[in-house]
């Protein structure tokens, strides 16, 4: 069944989009990620213009992180103070990102930049995760205790000035790296259409030493606002948010996520991380191939100032 997307201005198949949403929802339930980093490339593979895929991806991320953050709030694993500081940085980063987005688009280099960012980030994160999970799988098989390593308690970040106390996270740390991480995530969110959880979570754990149980809730909380802000700015400056597309993806995604959560309970943590790493690498590889292989057609058309 075809449906006409009012903003993307093209006809697409409803079931393909619902299935896409459900598949990504399943994976996001399985791995506890927002899924933005999967939905945007998938939409691009499905010939949705990248500018619309990115802005709509950001919109879709709101839905999945909102329901996640709600349950974390009930359990008290959400550090509002830390979340708001990350958010302050996020808004600056996101504004800069949308600005860069418009410039790249008028130069005709937006698609390239999006793909490059995806390849680099997904490649790096996927690679690191794969190494880490394979190591812990090996260690588990050898009978050694598993679990993430806890490196030394202090590093250079903890020597920066302007310290602030975050009670829920039991943390006393400078606000500079907090704002910085927020800004980077905001920037990526507006350019890549991702929530940024796959960067935020490791950054909070390894750089700031936030307790793992607080990390996910706080990261989701911040992502809601960053992606909401990104959606708003894209909607006002670039007119690229397709509400019909976002709805279809979210409906599929919410349903798929439930099955993902159930399936996730049957798998062990290291196995899950290894699978997620493989999937992330596969997406990165697919995008990289497109960059290096001669395109079917080297010419492309665009309307100046539009998609």
């Amino acid at each position: 069944m075809g449906i006409y997307l009012p903003i993307a201005e093209l006809s697409v198949n409803v079931f393909v989009l619902l299935a896409m949403g459900a598949a990504v929802g399943f994976l996001s339930g399985l791995f506890g990620v927002g899924g933005g980093f999967l939905i945007t490339p998938l939409l691009i593979f499905y010939n949705i213009p990248p500018a619309i895929a990115v802005a709509t991806g950001a919109n879709q991320v709101i839905g999945s992180s909102f329901s996640g953050a709600m349950s974390h709030m009930k359990r008290g694993t959400l550090d509002f103070r830390l979340g708001f500081m990350l958010l302050a940085g996020g808004i600056v980063g996101s504004t800069a990102g949308v600005y860069v987005f418009s410039i790249l688009r008028s130069l005709g280099q937006l698609d390239l930049f999006i793909s490059l960012l995806y390849v680099i980030l997904l490649g790096t994160v996927g690679g690191l995760m794969l190494v880490e999970s394979v190591n812990s799988l090996r260690a588990a098989r050898g009978g050694a205790p598993t679990g993430l390593k806890r490196p030394g308690q202090h590093n250079w970040i903890h020597r920066l000035p302007l310290k602030m106390r975050f009670r829920t996270s039991k943390l006393f740390v400078s606000v500079i790296p907090v704002l910085g991480i927020g800004a980077i995530i905001g920037f990526l969110s507006s350019i890549m259409g991702v929530g940024g959880g796959f960067i935020m979570v490791p950054a909070l754990i390894y750089l700031l030493r936030v307790p793992t149980n607080v990390v996910v809730g706080t990261s989701l909380f911040q992502i809601i606002f960053t992606s909401a802000y990104t959606t708003l700015v894209h909607a006002t400056t670039n007119f690229t948010v397709d509400i019909v597309l976002a709805m279809l993806l979210m409906v599929g995604g919410v349903a798929g996520a439930q099955y993902g959560v159930k399936a996730g309970q049957k798998l062990r943590g290291e196995q899950l991380r290894a699978l997620l790493a493989l999937m992330v690498l596969a997406v990165a590889l697919r995008l990289a191939v497109d960059l290096f292989i001669r395109p079917d057609n080297v010419y492309s058309l665009s309307i100046p100032g539009m998609g």
Binding site: N59, Q60, I62, G63, S64, S65, F66, S67, G68, M70, I224, A228, T231, L232, V233, H234, A235, T236, V241, I243, A246, M247, M250, V251, V254
Partner: peptide, 12 residues
Amino acid sequence: GLLSVGFAMAVG
């Protein structure tokens, strides 16, 4: 934009 955000939150 506000509407899109609101809808997304409602669905979530």
